[in-house]
C-alpha cells in the first residue's frame, strides 16, 4: 500500500524532470546555433586589421570596421545618457511617487513606448533631430536608440526600487530627511545593482538595432567623432555589407556580426554578474 504511491510519485517526478530539461534544451538550442554559425562564418575574416582599419573600397582587399566599432560605442554611449537618465527618472517617479495624478499617464507612455517598433523610433528621431538639423547625425541615432531604451530602463528601475524594503525608506524619513533626500541617498543606492543591470540589458537590446539608425545616424565609411555628422555603427555596417553583391564584404559582414554579438554578450554577462553581486 505504501510503496506504490511513493513509487508512482518518484516516476512522475522523473518524467517531469526529463520534460523540463528537454524544454530548457530546446530553448537553448537556437542560441547555440546562432552563436556557433556566426563564429564559424565570422572568425575567418577576423584579424587585427579588422579592428584598426576603416572599410576599404570595393575591390581592394583588407579593410576593417574600426569606424563602425567607434561609432557604435559613441552612439550607444549617447543613447545611454538619454535613455538611462529619462528612464531612471521616470522609474523613480512611478515607484516613489506612484500616487501622483500624473503617474498613470507616465506608466501608459512607458508601456506604449515599449511596444513601439524600432523603425518608428527612427522616424521620430528623423522628424525631431534630422529634419531641424538638416543632416543625418550620430546624435539623431542616439535619440532613436535612447527612446528605445527608456521603457526598458523604466521597468527595470521600478522593479528594482520595489525590492527596496519599506523599512529603509521609513528609517530615512524617521531621521527627519526630506523625501527626495531619502530617495537619492538611501533608496537609489540600495537598488543600484538592479538599475545598472536594467540599463545594461537595455543597452544590449538597442546596440544591435540597425533599422532606427538607417534614418538617423545613416552610416559613414570613414571614421568620425562628430556627433552632428553621420556616423557608422556595427549593425549598419553589417547591413551594408550583407546586402552587397561582393563575396569579401559578405565575409566582413559575418565578422562584424561576430564582433557585435560578442560586445552585446559581454554587456549581458556583465548585467548577469551585477545581479549575482546582489546576493
Amino acid at each position: 500500500m505504501r510503496a506504490t504511491p511513493a513509487a508512482g510519485r518518484r516516476l512522475r517526478d522523473r518524467v517531469m524532470t526529463v520534460l523540463v530539461a528537454l524544454g530548457a534544451a530546446v530553448a537553448l538550442l537556437p542560441l547555440f546555433l546562432v552563436l556557433g554559425y556566426v563564429v564559424r562564418e565570422g572568425i575567418g575574416a577576423l584579424d587585427l586589421a579588422f579592428f584598426i582599419r576603416d572599410p576599404a573600397p570595393v575591390g581592394e582587399p583588407g579593410g576593417g570596421v574600426r569606424n563602425a566599432i567607434v561609432g557604435s560605442l559613441i552612439i550607444n554611449l549617447m543613447a545611454s545618457l538619454i535613455g538611462v537618465t529619462i528612464g531612471v527618472g521616470a522609474g523613480v517617479f512611478l515607484s516613489e511617487y506612484g500616487q501622483h495624478p500624473l503617474a498613470p499617464l507616465v506608466r501608459l507612455v512607458g508601456d506604449v513606448l515599449g511596444g513601439m517598433p524600432a523603425i518608428i523610433m527612427g522616424l521620430v528621431a528623423y522628424e525631431i533631430v534630422v529634419r531641424p538639423m538638416r543632416s543625418f547625425s550620430a546624435l539623431a541615432g542616439a535619440v532613436a536608440l535612447g527612446l528605445l531604451m527608456i521603457p526598458i530602463v523604466i521597468r527595470a528601475t521600478e522593479s528594482a526600487l520595489a525590492l527596496v524594503p519599506r523599512e529603509l525608506r521609513e528609517a530615512g524619513m524617521a531621521l527627519g530627511l526630506p523625501r527626495w533626500r531619502v530617495t537619492v541617498s538611501v533608496v537609489l543606492p540600495a537598488a543600484r545593482y538592479g538599475i545598472v543591470t536594467g540599463a545594461l540589458l537595455a543597452l544590449a537590446r538597442v546596440a544591435g538595432e540597425a533599422a532606427p539608425l538607417l534614418l538617423t545616424a545613416f552610416g559613414n565609411p570613414y571614421l568620425s567623432f562628430d556627433p552632428t555628422k553621420p556616423m557608422d555603427s556595427l549593425p549598419l555596417r553589417v547591413f551594408v555589407y550583407a546586402i552587397s553583391p561582393f563575396r569579401e564584404w559578405h565575409a566582413q559582414a559575418w565578422a562584424a556580426s561576430l564582433v557585435l554579438v560578442l560586445l552585446i554578450l559581454s554587456a549581458t554577462l556583465a548585467a548577469r554578474w551585477m545581479t549575482r553581486q546582489r546576493a
Binding site: 524594503p165 523599512e167 529603509l168 521609513e170 528609517a171 530615512g172 524617521a174 531621521l175 538611501v186 543606492p189 540600495a190 543600484r192
Partner: peptide, 13 residues
C-alpha cells in the same frame, strides 16, 4: 526619532 521592528542598515554605507 524612531527605531523599527527589524534593524535597518543602509546597505551601501
Amino acid at each position: 526619532g524612531m527605531v523599527f521592528q527589524k534593524p535597518v542598515v543602509f546597505p551601501t554605507m
